[in-house]
Amino acid sequence: MFITSTAHKRVPSSASQSEQVKTLNDTSDKAFTFNIKRLLVAAGLLIILLAFAIGTAFFEQLAQIHTMLLHAFELILGMVAGLLGGEVIAKSEKS
């Protein structure tokens, strides 16, 4: 529903069919590039979130915040794992 295809990309009619295919392939090659910096930033944020969650576990007054931080850690860890899985699938489809 929300996925857009490059098949509908407009190419000038004067271009040959091989040039049209090459133009479409060029845009799809650049779409899936793995960025290690983003992974390191996400891992760093996860470590900080986990450290705060562990730190709040020692204080009884912060029990609700501790629970909230643990749930946030679980959700973000799931998203990072999903993104890594998506990168693996994208790389396997690319080759």
Score class of each variant (00 low, 15 high):
T4M: 11
F73T: 00
H8R: 13
S16P: 07
I65P: 06
A31F: 14
H71I: 08
R10W: 13
I54Q: 02
S28P: 02
P12E: 08
G85T: 00
S95P: 08
S14A: 13
S16F: 15
K22N: 08
F52S: 13
R38D: 13
L39A: 04
K9W: 12
L84S: 09
S5C: 07
I89N: 14
I54K: 03
A53T: 00
A63R: 13
I89S: 12
A43E: 09
T23A: 11
A51L: 05
V21S: 12
M68G: 13
Q61R: 13
M79R: 05
F52I: 03
L46E: 04
I54D: 05
A63V: 05
L77G: 04
G85M: 00
H71R: 11
K37P: 04
T56I: 03
S28G: 06
F2E: 06
A53G: 02
G78F: 00
K94V: 02
L84W: 07
R10P: 03
F58R: 07
F52G: 03
A90L: 03
S5H: 08
A53S: 02
L83N: 08
L49K: 03
L84I: 15
D29E: 10
L69Y: 00
L46H: 04
F2P: 13
A81Q: 01
I65M: 10
T23Y: 14
N35G: 09
L46C: 04
F32E: 02
H8K: 09
I47A: 10
A31L: 13
R38Y: 06
A63M: 05
G82F: 00
H8M: 08
M68F: 14
H66T: 03
E19H: 10
D29C: 11
K9I: 14
E74D: 08
Q64T: 12
L75W: 05
K37C: 05
A57G: 04
S14W: 13
K37T: 11
F2V: 15
L45A: 13
T6Y: 14
I47W: 05
T56M: 04
A42G: 03
P12H: 09
A57V: 04
F52A: 10
L24E: 09
I65S: 10
F52M: 14
T27W: 11
L77M: 03
E19V: 14
A72G: 01
K22P: 07
V11Y: 07
A72Q: 02
A90F: 00
M79Q: 11
K9M: 11
L40E: 13
D26L: 10
E19A: 08
N25V: 09
R38P: 05
T23Q: 11
T23F: 12
E93D: 15
R38H: 10
I89P: 06
V80D: 00
P12G: 05
L45G: 13
D26Y: 10
K91I: 01
T23D: 12
L69A: 04
A31W: 08
L24A: 07
G78N: 00
E74C: 12
K22H: 10
T56H: 00
M79V: 15
R10L: 14
A63W: 06
V21L: 10
E87I: 02
D26M: 12
A72V: 08
A72L: 01
T6M: 13
Q17L: 15
K30H: 11
F2I: 15
G55D: 05
L40T: 14
